[in-house]
Design a protein around this nucleic acid. Sequence first.
RNA 1: GCCGCUGUAGCUCAGUCGGUAGAGCAACGCAUUCGUAAUGCGUGGGUCGUAGGUUCAAGUCCUAUCAGCGGCACCA
Length: 651
Amino acid sequence: MSQITLTFPDGNQRNYDAGVTASDVAASIATSLAKKAISATVNGAHYDLAWPIDADATIAINTLKDETPALELIRHDLAHIMARAVQEIWPDVKVTIGPVIENGWYYDFDRAEPFSPEDLGAIEKKMRDIIAARDPVRTETWDRDRAIQYYRDNNEPYKVELVEAIPADQQIRMYWHGDWQDLCRGPHLQHTGQVPADGFKLMNVAGAYWRGDSSRAQLQRIYGVAFQNKEQLKAYLTMLEEAAKRDHRKLGREMDLFHMQEEAPGQIFWHPNGWKIYTTLQDYMRRQQTRGGYVEVNTPQVVDRKLWEASGHWEKYQENMFIVEVDEEHAREKAVNALKPMNCPCHVQVYNQGLKSYRDLPLRMAEFGSCNRYEPSGALHGIMRVRGFTQDDAHIFCTEDQIEAETKRFIEFLSNVYRDLGFESFQIKFSDRPEKRAGSDAVWDKAENALKTATQAAGYEFELNPGEGAFYGPKLEFVLTDAIGRDWQCGTLQVDFVLPERLDANYIGTDGNKHRPVMLHRAVLGSFERFIGILIESFAGKLPFWLAPRQVVVAAIVSDADDYCREVVAALQARGIRAELDLRNEKINYKVREHSLGKVPVILACGMKEVEQRTVSLRRLGENKTSVVDLSQVVTDLAGESVPPDMKVLL
RNA sequence: GCCGCUGUAGCUCAGUCGGUAGAGCAACGCAUUCGUAAUGCGUGGGUCGUAGGUUCAAGUCCUAUCAGCGGCACCA
């Protein structure tokens, strides 16, 4: 039998018979290691302890303390343990797939009756029994046909389908613990007892389609989360509670920002406080766009279907459009219109007025474009995903040669805005040509290269998102990370060769002939509604001073200070600060609590001491210390703070 | 759109076996003038999401429907 040499992380080398398993290797080092071992990393690949190693390799034995392999295995084994528990309780349930996901796993089942929350408890209990049994995990490799026959015999149609999708000559790895079996790539733990019994929790049940295809069977998906130990699980559950606390729907009510109601699903009733955030943000964006060389336009909401037919939306996007038909009796002629779901076709109409010269390009046309889309009911989510929204949209009409410079210019514009709004970093995803696309390969090569080169030239890296481009061109997506680590895709830049063609946009070149401009579709915030939702959640309602709808509350401690409080508010308002008065017959504790919950950044409390000394007692949100400041000083300071970041730069 | 769950006062929620609606906070009134996260007492407030049905009787059971929530699909 031939010998192989294994190299350990500390550089030591040992010789073994070829075909040795990591389990044997661990045992050759120490019995305790063999017991603790969960898997091995062999030449960088994650290996099951039971797999044979046939050639020289580097090897590391993993234990539960090694986070990456441990979490992978725990979650993966739990997926199997859960599937086994379900089938032990309900033998007629069909199993499908159960992958590891962020923080845990899920498994999709086919079962006629829905799983109830009580069922989850029963499953969890059964899982703990399986873990307590410390059932050894064993594996074999089978021919594909044997596996297919096995699953046919066991009446597991989904597994049959999965195996059939594997090439006929490929070996199939089968896993068992107890009597329960599953098809699996592996690796797995040594025995079920290696899963931390108090480190996991079943979270919820949801519908999911077989193979993600909405035309196929609807399955039931059970989600679980799992960690190396109880403490980490608890920390995760606490983080979820934190996220729930900053839910923009809850904060929107508490801060009195907006509401939504049945009669207008997916549309927002902005209250004064919320609308103040909106207009402050919009004013900011307008200033930035003006500085960035954009012209602003405004275009119609209700537009004849003819334009949508010409643009391609009628064919490609009709399901998502609100169609407006006017009753014939009242209409001079029957017309079918649609609420605009996008601004681009209208912008081309503006562009097409009059003759454009190459001297006019690049023409950067912006609109705070109010759009309506009939989103599927299940897609609606607070103010983040709505049917009526406003994009900070713009279309840059330019020549192909200008794509690169405009891309660079836009990324700089966008990163500046994100920084001002409190997001220091963002990632870029580059989506290239999809299967279904318009335009020649040569044009795509050109567009993709221009986008890529420009992004790199601007000094940014990107992640490739293959095949996810729009049908008319490649796109960049800008993803920012919020205060609790969640990613949000906000900005986008898309290269479009198709729409200028369809809507016959052109310009006169240096040669005196007509040429086709390229359109760059771009947005920074995406939509005001969604972005405000992100701001609320990221800041947990504690918006930066300049964006806070109610910046200051001046609260009287005793009613003899009322007149002075009025004077303080007037002084603040005279400097443009959004200050409110609270003269209610309540204790200062009550007022502080209420305005703190309302996320007002600054509370100025005034009692007789302040009246006599012409000062205020200043308390900032989130701090429980106060400071006494001269009235004139506080007005100057807060006026400085309320200046938007872009105006500060100019000062 | 699909699967599951939910819908009771402005908000958060209770409501048993089907017997005719309840709490806390908020609001309003009175008292209290108080020093940095809830002062006390009192008063008013509900077609139980909507529409049907079963029943002597429906918040409760059934059907339909609307909306919301969690996922899936969708997100140009």
